[in-house]
Write a protein that binds this DNA or RNA. Structure first.
Length: 419
DNA sequence: TCTGGGGTCCTAGGACCC
DNA sequence: TCTGGGGTCCTAGGACCC
């Protein structure tokens, strides 16, 4: 019998903010951006949740529900730092640890009873060790499968521990809403409700063939999940074998929709640079380049192209991105632009003989640029168009940067600042 | 309610090949 | 000659997670 733990930090972003500013403690706090911005809530304190504020809710809605809430942008670096601290603590308990996201982790504690004691005792030690290292609270679920451990930690929130002994899985799951199953979102929930299935217990009683007919491959996995089994989901494979990313992307939502080609073009180049930079950090090359366009009415389109050779070079990447964009843009105002690298290959990637010299020179230049960026910050060096992008974006989003100018007017004659 | 940004995985149709 | 079937790659879209 295997023994899995799922550990989930309580209101992680908010709690880290409180460490740096204790005056926030106990108050309604919303992390994600200012109250009047385009954007959604990344995290809400328990005091804010009492007003109905929850993550993924538009910031403006959160502000309406809870006008007295304190809105903060958040500090990504701090969350990453504290996530690392948690990871280090967990490694003392098991070599088989996997951070499933910035604020949650799975541990395989199979066979550690002699060392750590029974599951509840081990969970308490874990709880204390995490708090000692970070001054943050977490919730822990323990069970014979990762799926049940995850659902248990959710039920234990906040600041709790819940162990489901082997054999008790079905009894634990049966009364819970189907929505508690990871992977069952709004759409699947509605489909299940339409079949009269509301609780995980209802699901477990169904014929597997019925679920397969109605939901295909996913139905098969669903039947297993209703019984608390890991198989057939993303719980396949061992804990701890983390691999290379499968895609790398950056996107940007403009605070004001824009049809200004120079603004859009510059943003595409900037996003391309950010993506290729990260490709190089990971020593990866992308064979497929994709863009995403979102118009004012929220209609969203993606267009992809597979290159004849994989690349990690800004200019090659940006060229494909811009070409895709101009072949597909309707000239309507745009709300969001996104740039994606897919079909990632490790190693050198192939170049045609003709381009080899050019490519080698670019590689050298970019290595130097990356170094400077590392030392002085990402905005110091940029390809010309990217620099223009940073400038235009600033002016566009914050007209005060250019007194007396309408942010939507063409200001293409204006020179970008030089460093 | 007026909807971010970073990801993963799945489906489905068409091209193309044998 | 109006017509099979499987495999793989590519593209577009969508559900879902934190």
């Amino acid at each position: 019998m295997r023994s899995y733990f799922h550990l989930d930090m309580d209101a992680f972003f908010v709690s880290v903010e409180e460490l740096f500013d204790p005056s926030l403690k106990g108050k309604p706090v919303v992390v994600g951006g200012r109250a009047n911005e385009r954007g959604v809530v990344s995290a809400a304190s328990y005091a804010a949740r009492k007003f109905g504020v929850h993550s993924a809710m538009p910031l403006r809605t959160a502000h309406k529900l809870c006008p007295q809430a304190i809105f903060v942008e958040g500090h990504r670096e701090r969350y990453v730092e504290y996530s690392h601290k948690v990871y280090e603590v967990l490694q003392n308990f098991s070599p088989r640890v996997e951070m499933a996201s910035i604020d949650e982790a799975y541990l395989d504690l199979t066979g550690t009873e002699r060392l750590l004691g029974p599951p509840l005792a081990a969970a308490h030690s874990l709880h204390n060790a995490v708090h000692a290292a970070t001054h943050l609270n977490c919730s822990i679920g323990a069970a014979s499968s990762r799926l049940v451990a995850k659902i248990a930690s959710d039920q234990a929130k906040p600041h709790g521990i819940l162990w489901i002994p082997p054999g008790c899985e079905a009894r634990f799951l049966a009364p819970l809403d189907v929505r508690k199953i990871p992977g069952v979102g709004k759409v699947t929930e509605r489909n299940l409700h339409d079949c009269g299935i509301r609780k995980i217990g209802d699901l477990a009683q169904l014929d597997q063939s019925f679920l397969e007919d109605r939901f295909g491959k996913w139905g098969f996995a669903l039947a297993g999940k209703a019984r608390g089994e890991d198989a057939g989901g993303w719980f396949d494979g061992e804990i701890g074998d983390d691999d290379d990313p499968k895609s790398i992307s950056h996107e940007h939502t403009f605070s004001i929709d824009t049809a200004d080609a120079s603004v859009l073009d510059a943003m595409l180049v900037r996003l391309s640079e950010m993506v290729s930079r990260r490709l190089r950090d990971h020593h990866l090359h992308a064979r497929t380049v994709q863009i995403k366009l979102r118009y004012s009415d929220f209609s969203t389109f993606t267009r992809a192209r597979t290159l004849d050779h994989a690349t990690q070079i800004d200019t090659e990447f940006a060229a494909a991105v811009r070409d895709l964009f101009y072949k597909n843009w309707t000239k309507e105002p745009i709300r969001l632009l996104g740039v994606y690298a897919q079909s990632l290959e490790s190693g050198e990637g192939q170049t045609s003989l003709l381009d080899e010299d050019k490519t080698a020179r670019w590689r050298k230049t970019l290595a130097a640029v990356d170094k400077i960026r590392e030392k002085y910050g990402d905005t110091t060096v940029s390809l010309a168009a990217g620099l223009t992008a940073a400038f235009r974006a600033r002016v566009h989003e914050n007209p005060e940067n250019l007194p007396g100018k309408d942010p939507r007017s063409k200001d293409s004659e204006k020179e970008p600042p030089h460093d």
